[in-house]
Design a protein around this nucleic acid. Structure first.
Length: 114
RNA sequence: CCAGAUUAUCGGUUGGCCGCACGUCUUAAUAACAGAAGAUGUGAGGAAAGUCCGGGCAGCAAAGGGAAGAACAGUCGCUAACGGCGACCGGGCGUGAGCCUAGGGAAAGUGCCACAGAGACCAAACCGCCUUAGAUUCGAGGUAAGGGUGAAAAGAGUAGGGUAAGAGCCUACAGCGCCAGAUAGUGAUAUCUGGGUGAAAGGUAAACCCUGUUCGCUGCAAGGAGAUGGAUUCUAGAGGCCUAAAGCCUUAAGCGUCCCGCUAAGAAGGAUUCAUCAUAUAAAUCCGCUCGAUCCUGCAGGCAACUUCAGGACUAGAUAGAUGGCCAACUAAAACAGAACCCGGCUUACGGAUAAUCUGGCAGU
RNA sequence: CGGGGAUUGGCGCAGUUGGCUAGCGCGCCGCGUUUGGGACGCGGAGGUCGGAGGUUCGAGUCCUCUAUCCCCGA
């Protein structure tokens, strides 16, 4: 789980990232990212619609796995960034932690954040 | 041993490493706030779920009467309350342990009962039976015992009498209902006795309806919170009768459906607005927010639901939302599933494990 | 947190106060027509009314529970 300093929320913050950010896609996930000069560290948010899976347990599991993965890349990320992960499928809930790690590592490299 | 019935408990555990939320302590010296590091404690459920009921709490000035509307319906109890729970009664199912039961009123009224059938609810004659005429057709009349139709046919069985043929038409006995009484029970009700008692009263109220009981509305996104100093305005209006006041009449507004009725507070409160300070626009704080009809243990009362008393415990409080990841062991860790103001129930989902009591069958002693 | 609605052949919809065999349009299949196709004409198949239980003689319709989907308010 991430520290609260590295999580973010709020309509205006998310809208800013959606408006000025760039997009990197894969089959299960989309990463939106925007540089944030006001901050020294990164911030991340995970967005999962209720349409993906009705069960709150499943959605929580996906969110925790993604936060846990980001924590593993914690020291490699430098500079202020706002990261938004949009989830498109509930397959991630059943995936191994290493597979999720690979998935997100590819996205972060494509975005040239690490 | 096999097949069941009922009830209760559990809902992964232990160790190691990394990490999250909240509290406390230390670094710590400070007027306060914020932040950092370290240590330490605590951290989802039996259904947290569906949101189907009931309450607490908060706001609507207060929550009065009636109507409308809604819910409920055996009896007695339990409870803060309930549409919940317990025990019992009646009915149904099961060999049994047990299980199910929306279970007031159809002799207040209205509606509906398709098709078939002569007739579907103040009865009626299709077939049959009988009388009439010489007679089998046809006609008139009698007859509800028998047949046929239908979910249901007027709704008292057996025997005897009676008759043209029949029929509670009459009698006896039996059944049912009604009335009265006795016994048992708080009661629903059960059992019994009596009657110069009745033949009326088909079904449907999860059709309208009647009777009885309960319910004001909205919901924590409820609701509340800057400091100091000024200004304006409102807190029951408007119109009419009357010289005026009081009073009366009409008509607005509020009480979140309508009518009646009511309309508090002037040392109080609300609304608008100005100035200065404080605060934010990549933000969005604090209170409500968790000590409560709380939980655990014991004794006592009660068949039980539950309750009195005594002792002990403090046991999530997040705010885009905290419980996760890896390794090892336990045969395997896999079910349904994540607190969001708080409680009491109901309903639904659920891999499995354990215990107790009881029933039926088979075998042995 | 609160409120409202829908579910009926493959698709889109009717079904009124419970009643006779649940209908309509498009689509599908067969035959006819045409040199062939379309259009047209004739005929036909396909449904246990989302699921479970109850009330009733009888339920798509009434009642209870439940599943899925959609919409609205704060």
């Amino acid at each position: 789980m991430l520290n609260r300093a590295h999580r973010f929320h709020g309509r205006t913050s998310l809208n800013r990232a959606y408006k000025y950010g760039k997009t990197v896609r894969s089959q299960l996930l989309t990463l939106k990212f925007a540089p944030n000069p006001k901050r020294t560290g990164y911030r991340a948010a995970v967005v999962i619609s209720r349409k993906i899976n009705k069960s709150s347990v499943t959605r929580n599991r996906i969110r925790r796995k993604i936060y846990e993965t980001i924590r593993q890349y914690d020291k490699q990320i430098e500079g202020g960034f706002d990261l938004i992960f949009n989830v498109y499928s509930d397959e991630i809930a059943n995936m191994d932690i290493n597979q999720v790690s690979d998935l997100i590592g590819v996205l972060l490299k494509q975005a040239k954040i690490i």
